[in-house]
Amino acid sequence: MQRVPRWSIHLALVVICFFMLIPFYWVLKTSVAGENIFAYPPSLVPKDPHPFYFIDVWYDIPFARFFLNSVVVVTIVIVLNLVFNAMAGYALTRDFAGKKAILFVLLSCMMIPFQATIIPAYLITAKMGLLNTYLGLALPEVSHIICILVFKANFEAVPKSLVEAARIDGVPEWKIVYKIMLPLSKPAIATNIVFSFVWTWNHFLWPLIIISDQDMQTLPLGLSYFLSYFEDTTGALYAFCVMVLAPTVFVFLMVQRQFIQGLTSGSTKG
């Protein structure tokens, strides 16, 4: 790499970044376009940009309701993931009979993609009476095996002496997790939150299957229904896309490091 001149590296990277960013630019441009978006040739910059398409989205469809649904489901998933995964991760740092078997089961479950479970998962959810509910949307995702393993690794890095000392002082187990382990496991917590957020926020197939009530639609589902009703005939569709992507971009740019680490640590260290 040393012999290659720097400017050529920069040039190559600028070209690559251009290709990575152009779809974002194009949707943003379309969403504020003042001109007819079906005019040919397409204008490369928006003429008299206006926010009307965004207003359309806000008033024509229950965007706020979709947004709320997404936020509620994501919140349930994040909170339960933190609780369940931390508990399981802690249990797996202890020695007990059958630990190997449990780890084997967990690692095997990791090989079952969610997509291979949709039919029975739907039937089970229907049987529990949870179709069209937040809980039904959240339940399959309230624990991720990768996140359990991340917690386990993080807990194992906590000095044993600290835990022993607390135990001798008679501190109950749940308090050891809550007061000693968790404050020392911020990276694992960040991983859990990022993972849960991205997967649940973007998840489309599961809501598509179990939600038929319009009031319960999450954002991806609302977006796809919008597409099937209006096709691509209005700029509002692209304003909708921008509104759906904005939170992810925002969160991503705010906590970039945790974000990238969170999404990759599961697959590279798990």
Binding site: P23, W201, P220, L223, C241, V244, L245
Partner: peptide, 12 residues
């Protein structure tokens, strides 16, 4: 692009 919602990406 990786963490973006695939439904929106598809539409774009």
């Amino acid at each position: 692009s990786y963490p973006m919602m695939p439904v929106a990406v598809g539409i774009i």
